[in-house]
Every structure is written in C-alpha cells, then in structure tokens.
Design a protein around this nucleic acid. Sequence first.
DNA 1: AAAGGCCTCAACCGCATCTTG
DNA 2: GCAAGATGCGGTTGAGGCCTT
Length: 307
Amino acid sequence: MGRAPCCDKAIVKKGPWSPEEDRQLKEYMEKYGTGGNWIALPHKAGLNRCGKSCRLRWLNYLRPNIKHGDFTDDEDRIICNLYATIGSRWSIIASQLPGRTDNDIKNYWNSKLKKKLLGFPPSQRKTHQQLQKQLEQQQQQQFFPYPPEIRTGSFSSPPSLEGMQISQYLPTPMSATTFSSPLPQGSMHQCQVKDSSSLLIFGSEQSCSSSDGSCTQISYGSNVVDYELCNGGQQMRSLESFLYGGMEETQKLFLGDGEASLEYNIEEIKPLVGPNSWCNSLFGDDLSSATTKDISFKPPGKAMYYY
DNA sequence: AAAGGCCTCAACCGCATCTTG
DNA sequence: GCAAGATGCGGTTGAGGCCTT
C-alpha cells in the first residue's frame, strides 16, 4: 500500500497561481509564517491548494529577495563550476547564489546555459537537429578539458557536460588535480590537523580497507561525501573552516590515506570551497566553539559537496 | 497570414530523507 | 526501533508565447 496523499488531489486547485492567491499566501506568510506545517497552511490561509504547492510558490516566487531575470557572468561561472563538481544538485548550487532558486537554476541550465556552453549566442534559436549536430561535432573534437584518465573509468562526470567547452568556467588546473585525488566516494573520511600549517583528510578504516584498489579511485564531481571529522582531541575544524575560519597559518591541504596523500596549497583550494557551509550553520562565526574531544559528527548528508 | 515547431519557466510528481510520537 | 507524516529535492510536464517556414 502506498503512502496516503498529502492532500485530496480531486479537491485542491492545480495549475498557475492567480494574483489573488499570491496575495493571500504572501499576506499569511508575512503574518504567521509557515507555523512549521506546510500541509495545514493552505487551510489556515484560506487557500484551496496543496501544501506542497504553497511551499513551492512561496520559495520560488513570493518570498522576499528572490532575484528574477538574467543571470550574470559570475553566476554562470559559479553554476558551471558547481555543476562540473557536483552535478545536478540544484539546491546546493542555489545556496551559493543568493536570491536564486533551485528551480530557476535548473530551468536556466536546461534551457540556456547548456546551449551557451555549446557556443550558441544566447538569443539564437536552433532546431533540434542543429543542436544535436553541433553537440556531436564538439564531442568528436574532444573539447572536454580533463585528461583521459579522469574522463574514463570511475570518473562519472555529469554526462550532459561532456563534450562542452566548459574549461573557461572551471578553476583549472586545480579542479583536475583535486578530482583525481585518492579519496573514495560515498564513504566516511577523517580530517585532522597534520601540523601547524596543514590539514589532513583521509579515509576511515572501514572505507579504505579494500585491497582491490577501489578505495584509491574517486568519482569526479557528482557525489556527496560524508565526512567524519575528528582530530584526536585537537581543535576540530572542517575543511572550509580551515580555509575561511581565520586559520591563516594553514597553508597546505593533504588528501589521501595518511600515507600517500596528495598535497595542495590552500590558496588553490579556496576557489572550490564556498564560505557558506554546514559548518558555519552549525557553529556560526565562532568556530572556536567547535573545539571538543571525541568529535564525531556528520554534517547534514547533502551539505558537503567538495574537497 | 497561418501553421507548426521550439523555447521558457511555473508547477507538478514521485521518491528520498528527515522528524516526530 | 518503528511507523507515519512532513519536508526537500530533482526530473518531468505542459501552457503560452515566440520564431521559422
């Protein structure tokens, strides 16, 4: 037996919102907020809509500080960087673009940016056949900016990006180096102070004990990695808190298994790591409050998306 | 001018994850 | 620990406007 629907679809209104409905929802939200319950909201607000529909309308259209209209070049660059790194995790990408919604970015990517990367002028219309042909041509020309060893094998880049001229949007050469690091995907990692100027991230035993070598591979980009952060009682920080949390003395980052880790300069990593993160949301600006013993926590599952 | 096709984007759907009791 | 409900997310759809032929 399936889940009971959140609302009676035969009764609630569907389709485009009228200005009157918008006004009702906005008025209610400004007065009372969600009250922690979207499902009950439409009834309270006098709207004949599903709670999910109200939530979507508010988040994507009505809430304050929503940006509509053209995306800037900077925003394009950020979207491309993140898409290349994490794939179609639109909500994460949106979190890096204040005022933009995941839906907006998703639509923008699917309708415009992808074509822009294919080299079409923004306003130029192409027939489906023309698009297909140009895509095929570019794929044949191997425009993909990463070396073959990264393009193949365990490498699972967002498929729609392959063949596109995205190199101008990527923080190369750092990205290629980072993506070929030996961190296994989808597993727990540990993170610790290596010395006064370095941070070491390495796989936990259970994730890196395989003898078949699989743990030395990394799938480029699209995967979220849960980190277990612990540092044996020293002050614990996440990667980005090292980068942005006032640890100016931190100069190097090591990715690897502790034995044969790769070394990166912090300044090279910074462009890949945004200052907004789960860590900041957990501890606020006062990162020193993260000091603890026996630290073992996981950030929200989908919040970490880089290294 | 008309018809057909394409493009955009708001909204929906279904599934996964989180929260609560 | 479990089940039910709520929320979040990404993929998909479809209406309406625009462009091409």
